[in-house]
Design a protein around this nucleic acid. Structure first.
Lengths: 230, 230
DNA sequence: GTCATCCTGCCGTAAACTGTCAGCAGACCC
DNA sequence: GGGTCTGCTGACAGTTTACGGCAGGATGAC
């Protein structure tokens, strides 16, 4: 596994050398051609490293997401968050507090961007219930859109069986009693809406949006006392 | 980079599955042939992983206890375990698997004794429900006894209001619908019993016991296919 | 505009990876 | 001891992947 080792050395070089570093320099450092270095950079980025590359300047490693001995994927964080929410409905205060502390410690070790996202997008509410019909759409895609702050275009059939097409800024998925609910800002109604996931007939990702544009989200989710966002 | 990802999943599987794990099982888990699995194991060993392979048994991963920068208390682990169990009842397989993997990674960083206990005593079953009356006994003490494999002496009032004193080897607490249940091996009845925690009038810790002495526990918890079990 | 740099696509070669087949050795049960 | 399950290794062939070289486009600083 010379490749893995080289990627490690590349990360080390990015940390060690003063930013920005040119690709040629990094290629010489890791003993590889420039073309391959671009591929290696792409590999690291795919693995979650936040490497900023600017034309005319070079590469800058902005976050250290490489290997905290415990690194969790976004999906894993989300799973733990939701699990904790479920736990909090148990009534065992001691366990609830313990779980909350443990989770806080996990979130604390995340790189900033990830941590912020985890805090922003934990609208995965929980309501006790049992079995539930499997949704017809790609739930992973929906979750990804929540994470990436990307709007979704949905075909929705409401309770009166009227079918509409909507653009929604998704904020989170709510696991309620017998159905999954999507909480989002509906651009058609210009208001917050809950959508029954089972009533979403089709789903596709749209462009990105800024959650700051959704007025109540920040106050609701992070409870910051600041006046201006971020 | 399918290979690196597969090696990661192999590590996760080694942490998650109860030791020892056969190569065939790991091969199925990582979606690879048995021969290749042996090669992957060799790769992990070359990378420093301490994987013990015994003929006729399977593989056992002994974690490097040198670096737990994330240390969790027993209570926190238990909370996360229970939370994960609750999560698994949601029906979202992707999230469930993610939570399971994250939890396996957390457990992996624990010192050996703690990790073993965590794996053995995760009988904290979950059944959906809502509010519940607070128990009259020290729930923390009960949980501690489960962790430490210490027997408990209880004064129990059964459904016919008969009061008995029992020695119980506690295996776990089950959070069921409206009451807490203690699953344990009752030395008086020489059998597994569920005890309503609300019906336990007093509780004190006794001596230690070996869970191996409880015949069905291992078969139940590890689900071995060997002849004598189940 | 010029330059430096990031970034991507294509192609041919070499290396690495993987599955199949075969065999040996140790642990456990009867 | 025999039978069975399992870890472990070697050899071979097919496939995939990594890699370097080249060309070209895009972006920002000067």
């Amino acid at each position: 596994m010379a490749r893995t080792d080289r990627l490690m050395r590349l990360m080390t070089a990015l940390r060690r050398l003063p930013a920005p570093v040119t690709a040629a320099r990094l290629a010489a450092e890791t003993g590889v051609s420039a073309r391959q270095l671009y591929r290696d950079i792409a590999t690291l980025r795919a693995g979650g490293a936040l490497i900023d590359g600017e034309a005319g300047l070079g590469y800058t490693l902005t976050e250290d997401t490489a290997l905290p001995p415990q690194s969790f994927s976004r999906l894993e964080i989300e799973a733990l968050m939701l699990a904790q929410t479920a736990l909090s409905h148990l009534g065992d205060d001691t366990l609830t507090r313990a779980g909350r502390d443990a989770l806080a410690r996990i979130v604390a070790t995340l790189p900033d961007a990830q941590a912020r996202a985890a805090l922003h997008h934990t609208h995965t509410a929980w309501h006790p219930g049992t079995a539930r019909a499997a949704p017809g759409i790609d739930l992973d895609l929906l979750r990804t859109c929540c994470w990436d702050e990307v709007s979704v275009h949905i075909t929705y059939r409401d309770r009166q069986e009227r079918v509409t097409e909507r653009e929604v800024w998704p904020l989170g998925v709510s696991y309620s009693e017998r159905t999954l609910m999507l909480l989002g800002w509906c651009r058609m109604r210009m208001d917050y809406r809950y959508f029954h996931v089972n009533r979403i007939e089709s789903l596709c990702a749209g462009g990105s949006f800024r959650p700051q544009r959704v007025p109540l989200l920040r106050a609701h989710s992070t409870r910051r006392a600041r006046g201006s966002g971020t």
